[in-house]
Design a binder for these strands. Structure first.
Lengths: 183, 183
DNA sequence: GAGCCTCCGTACGGCACCGTATGGAATGTG
DNA sequence: CACATTCCATACGGTGCCGTACGGAGGCTC
């Protein structure tokens, strides 16, 4: 009656560990303890630790990245979409933990390609949003980089040193105004 | 005639390693190899690895943080100060590597206090800058958080995925306009 | 229920790093 | 030039993780 595990079971606990402790926490033996199994299972489903990490990151890319875009796309106007995006980080910064973990491990061969794809896609998406707001191509790109920088930076601040951020509700308004406003 | 080392020699190589490989790279044995000595030296100067890391972070805090503020303070007006700050990241993102390494290791007991102090000091400094630009206290705080988020986020982007950032010179102008502009 | 295939536990060797013990070299001090 | 002090190399045991080898248990098929 011993439970059996699937690849998905392993990537699920790996995602937990990834969010909590970063890429280094995706380690076979600690994960085995967490899942209530031994390494034997892990090394049956995956050839090595790198493959497990890769599968985990790709699962995150598939599920999470698109989930955010869908959440945002549910809004009607570009403005509302932007607001949804920033409100998302401000209200639940923990959900960004994995992206920050990936940024911190940008040199890892399993991380780099996923990180590049996700970043490019998001910048491109934001760029479209700003074009929709009436910005010219070049300006839209800069706004996109700016907006994504704010997104990342706020996620960092809220996770690492949340106590320095006061009045999140009003901050959201100021942030949006600053990012979409005509200088 | 074998060279002798000081605490400062050790924290110097530790700073290098910290910038290159993050907090995890501040490890006694690799550092000993890098410095051309053995662990014996390290464990004479420091009781353990944690103490070496702590001394390294505090050295960075002392030297680097104040250095940036002095660089910025050399400018006359708040506007020029802000410009200098953002130009600094955009032109030399590698100099921010250590701060990002600390953010990634926010839970490390040696990192947390330094990270908190540095973040608080910088936000407070930016807040003063925005008060100098005529913002009310609350608004100045939000601008400070916004500006610091942009700083961190751009540093992240430029280090992790530099290819997505185009036209840095024009980006600088757009960034400043967005951060100081009235919504 | 015999045999097969899937899955996993156990046991092992290896590597990288931590920290300790200790003798001795290098350097300062009388 | 004794001789104490400062500094460091060597050698060792301990821990946590990687990856492999292998046997065996659980479920499937006939």
């Amino acid at each position: 009656m011993t439970k059996r595990r699937t690849k998905d079971d392993w990537t699920a606990v790996a995602l937990e560990a990834l969010a909590e402790g970063g890429v280094a926490a995706v380690a076979v033996e600690p994960l085995a303890a967490r899942i209530g199994a031994t390494k034997g299972s892990a090394y049956w489903h995956f050839p090595n630790r790198e493959a497990l990490l890769k599968a985990t990151l790709e699962r995150w890319e598939r599920e999470h990245t698109e989930a955010v875009i869908e959440l945002v796309e549910a809004r009607a106007t570009p403005m509302e979409k932007l607001r949804t995006l920033f409100a998302y980080v401000l209200e639940d910064p923990a959900s960004s933990a994995i992206e920050l973990a990936m940024l911190a491990a940008k040199d890892d061969p399993a991380v780099a390609p996923v990180l590049n794809r996700v970043t490019e896609r998001r910048i491109a998406y934001l760029e479209d949003l700003f074009v929709g707001l009436g910005f010219a191509a070049g300006a839209a790109h800069h706004r996109a980089v700016l907006a994504y920088s704010v997104y990342l930076g706020q996620a960092q601040l809220l996770i690492a040193t949340p106590h320095v951020v006061l009045g999140r509700r009003a901050l959201l308004e100021d942030t949006i105004a600053a990012v979409v406003g005509r200088g």
